[in-house]
Amino acid sequence: MRRRRWRVVVLTIAAIYFLVPLLSAAEFSLRVPGGGYGLGNYLAIAHDDVLLTSLLTSLQIAVLTAVVVLVLVVPTAVWVRLRFPSVAGLLESATILPIVVPPVVMAAGIAFVQANLGGPVFRTLFASSTTALTPFYVVLALPFAYRAVDNGLAAIPLRTLVEAARNLGAGLPSALVRVVLPAIRTAVLGAAFLTLALVLGEIVIARILLYTDTFPIAVVEVGRSAAGVSVALSLASLLFTWVLLLAVSFAGGGRTRSRRTSA
């Protein structure tokens, strides 16, 4: 047996480094005024209309963003793998851009448009936080969504599936929707939940464009008067998205296992 002490060391350091801040925040969020621990901070959202409304707004943005992201990413990733593998590298570089272009710079450009350009198109775009933020959150979500979907496509015999479907009379769009999409559904769900994680955490663009009715901004605002509530909500949304992703991961794993044994 090879010695793998370094592995234990690395995993231990990682566990400490990643868990201590989260546990510290959790401990703080469980404190109740006057000493002791309780769930009060976690229940506060139920009787706070501002938070509830903002949560609904953000969920709406998240769903819209996820839909647009998938409509852009899935056909493109399929297309590149089927017809245009030579640009795979180019596209991968293009999807890196939104990670490295600072959101604050993006926000600066958008703010410029918001302040200086008029016309019906822009007025509609900037009318509400949903219409104004969704298009740009799509850009921010693209890198990881593209990666997730492309990894999903790499794991299936894409060309054979599509050719079989077309051979049976399906057009390319229906081959995509009925054959490819179900085959990569875990990757698609993963991409959607990563988008959710993004939308539930993004405050830079929202704040600079002065859309203060999203959930993350409301959480920060609440923090000014009740820090415990703010931390509790942040942790809850983090945990929520993580559990969703984990559930998808295990569901997908179960499927591959059963397929392997039946083959």
Binding site: L245, L246, S249
Partner: peptide, 28 residues
């Protein structure tokens, strides 16, 4: 372990801003 790290990476890569700052203040 692999699933936990893979999914947690997806979530934590987006974790930032006030909540992250607060977690570190609460710890350190």
């Amino acid at each position: 372990l692999r699933r936990i790290v893979a999914t947690a990476s997806g979530v934590l890569a987006y974790f930032g801003g006030v909540p992250l700052a607060f977690a570190f203040i609460a710890a350190l």
